[in-house]
Design a protein around this nucleic acid. Sequence first.
DNA 1: CAATGCTATTCCATCCAATGAAAGAGCACT
DNA 2: AGTGCTCTTTCATTGGATGGAATAGCATTG
Lengths: 276, 276
Amino acid sequence: MTIPPETDAPPVRGKRPKQGEPVVDRALSLLAVFSDRRRALTLSELARYADMPAPTALRLIARLVAWGALERLDDGRYVVGVRLWEVASLSPRGHGVREIALPYLEDLFEVTRHHVLLAVRDNEQAVLIERLSSRDATEVAYRVGGRAPLRSTAVGLVLLAGADHQFQEAILRKPPEDEPGVAALPEGQVRRTLSDVRRTGIAMIRRTAPSRTVSVASPIFDAQGSVAAALSIVVPDGSTPPNVLAPAVRAAARAVSRNLGHQAEVSSDVWTHSQG
Amino acid sequence: MTIPPETDAPPVRGKRPKQGEPVVDRALSLLAVFSDRRRALTLSELARYADMPAPTALRLIARLVAWGALERLDDGRYVVGVRLWEVASLSPRGHGVREIALPYLEDLFEVTRHHVLLAVRDNEQAVLIERLSSRDATEVAYRVGGRAPLRSTAVGLVLLAGADHQFQEAILRKPPEDEPGVAALPEGQVRRTLSDVRRTGIAMIRRTAPSRTVSVASPIFDAQGSVAAALSIVVPDGSTPPNVLAPAVRAAARAVSRNLGHQAEVSSDVWTHSQG
DNA sequence: CAATGCTATTCCATCCAATGAAAGAGCACT
DNA sequence: AGTGCTCTTTCATTGGATGGAATAGCATTG
């Protein structure tokens, strides 16, 4: 589609395409283009997905590459760079909890030989921080660095239960994003579930896809007593009964909490804080 | 090249502080301020370390926070955000190799119960991508996300040996950054060592600080046959003899290489490629 | 409790970095 | 030689970025 080069009377005076957006935002939007499915991108792909002219994209990318946020492959495509990963490894809620939790995740993993997950909440979703899996374990839905819904995963429910009340209400008001293999609970039942989670320190979810599994999750508390993360184990449905797993999961989560500086409550109520 | 339009301009007129630097670079320099020792910073600290006026820093930080590259703590300080960590998890040389290598690292770890390390090269240093440690293992010098010198660590030697010749020479010409607990090898001996590493697929380093340890490292190759990463094990000096560890380390490294798409050579020469 | 010293935030007139169309260069396929 | 694509460079225009100055907040001090 080539427009006749003449048209000497440009209707809109040049144009007003995309100006007005801060440069930093544009640079960040280039980073945001990368995803699980898009790990290596060409200049034109980046420009297209980030919705900016190629020269602009190129200029910004050049800066990102110079710093190390992106790296250029031999074939000219761009990927996320090690330097960015390095800085990101300083994220307290990313690598931070992960570092502290890993030994306990490993213990749990070695004993059970099933998937062990660690997740934190970011806005309205859970972000998977760590996953330990034996090579022959059942298929699992999420990858490290990926996102999962709050309402329909075990870690999500734990994180949601630990969020302040106002946030919970906001989430409950929204229509549930339906998740393959998980029956969407009606609002009332979610409320009851969240209350159970707070009381017992355990959330369970049964999935039928991508495979039939049961997840058991428990909260990890920080020094302020708020829920900083959630730890869970995922086993094939019908293998170990969930109530057998629960104590191990809770124990692991408590161990991590302690290492985060959390003072365990004397009370039997596991969850007395952080109800905004 | 711009010719000075007119020299009549007032000499410094107020000042010419820092202008002229691309905004993106400034934003990135804010991220670069974070380090192992500086994980949570105030606005003024960020402005000071990144060498820019507070209002400028605040404006940029506001964009970074809005996107999720930074997060603001209750006390007003800023930390690296989960969103950045999430994007960084797409880094092929960061989480990428890590994801593929982890099961094999774990095997090695479970068998030996000693530190297992995974590192890639970034410019003139090795970046630690993963480290598995039992809680009671000997003290180790590096943390995940941290950097280590190429000339005086086992993984570093492996990565250096796998770099193109021109780069190797550049490194060898530089004075060795002396590393606590490691005897700096003279240039000639480093050359010989690198050649040995290429021949045997094994590098060894003995340290005396922070504790007396022996490291044994082996290269991980990608599909193109170049050294993508290095895997090593760190044991207390005097425990398992290094030559007993070597086969296990090499086997683990080869397993990872295979999963990266590397076609093992039929020849006994483990290392025939990537000599620029 | 005024004074001091710090950090965080808002404001705004100035100006330079950012912008993107256009054109050129390179490459693959026809 | 022609077509269609992506990547790169150039450059005149302009709007976002800039940072000093002022304000607000908040401890600590005399």
